[in-house]
């Protein structure tokens, strides 16, 4: 049923192509999974499941097309089908858990952030990053999703519409509402820190 161009690929060829085209998306995909599930083990499972599904349907994937959007779409659907009902309240996150996560040693090893940066600046950056993360994590999952896709992963509205299976107009209005909620949460934080410029 796929468009077989000439001869059938051997399993080795297929595996090699699969790895070359789809494994480079692992990092953004895992990050997306983590932001959806807010749990490292769930993110792990979700990503594995996504790759296995992608492998099963790899014949339908047209080489050279948008592998990233394709995988994000599969992951999003798997999340809706399985994880959402499992974790009843993905929108609420225990703040201490997030804190614990960011304090864990793993994170400090992150790609060369440390070495040359001024410590003071770095801790301010961390503080802002933590605040953005907890504001984002407190948003309903649909809002969180569009912000991640747009601002973190840089998908276009059209790609987002395909990933989420919704019209572009809905992408646009959802993004607008999501940003308003995020802004509200971050403004509360800014006020609590003594910035009152609104």
């Amino acid at each position: 049923m796929s468009e077989q161009t000439g001869k059938q690929m051997s399993k080795e060829e297929k595996d090699a192509r699969f790895e070359a085209e789809l494994l480079p998306v692992l990092d953004p995909l895992y990050n997306f999974a983590y932001r959806l599930t807010l749990d490292e083990d769930d993110a792990n499972d979700l990503v594995q499941e996504t790759y296995l599904k992608a492998y099963r349907f790899f014949d339908y994937f047209e080489q050279g097309t948008n592998a990233k959007a394709w995988l994000f779409r599969i992951l999003k659907n798997s999340f809706i089908n399985e994880f959402r009902k499992k974790s009843k309240q993905p929108a609420k996150v225990d703040y201490s858990e997030v804190e614990g996560y960011y304090n864990s040693d793993d994170v400090e090893g992150e790609g060369g952030v440390a070495t040359t940066t001024d410590l003071r600046t770095e801790s301010v950056q961390d503080l802002i990053g933590d605040e953005v993360a907890s504001a984002l994590n407190a948003l309903p999952v649909d809002f969180r999703t569009v912000i991640i896709l747009c601002d973190l992963e840089g998908f276009t509205y059209e790609e987002m519409a395909k990933i989420l299976d919704i019209p572009i107009g809905t992408v646009r209005s959802r993004l607008h509402r999501a940003r308003n909620s995020l802004k509200e949460k971050l403004e509360n934080y800014a006020k609590s820190m003594g910035y009152n410029n609104s």
């Binding site: 895992y30 983590y34 790759y51 296995l52 492998y55 992150e110 802002i128 802004k183």
Partner: peptide, 27 residues
Amino acid sequence: LKNLVSGHLKRVIVPESLALSIKARIQ
């Protein structure tokens, strides 16, 4: 607001075992 997310949200680190287990399961 957009820059806060794109520039300050930390990326989580992919566990090293993940790519290996995906490859193994595919094989």
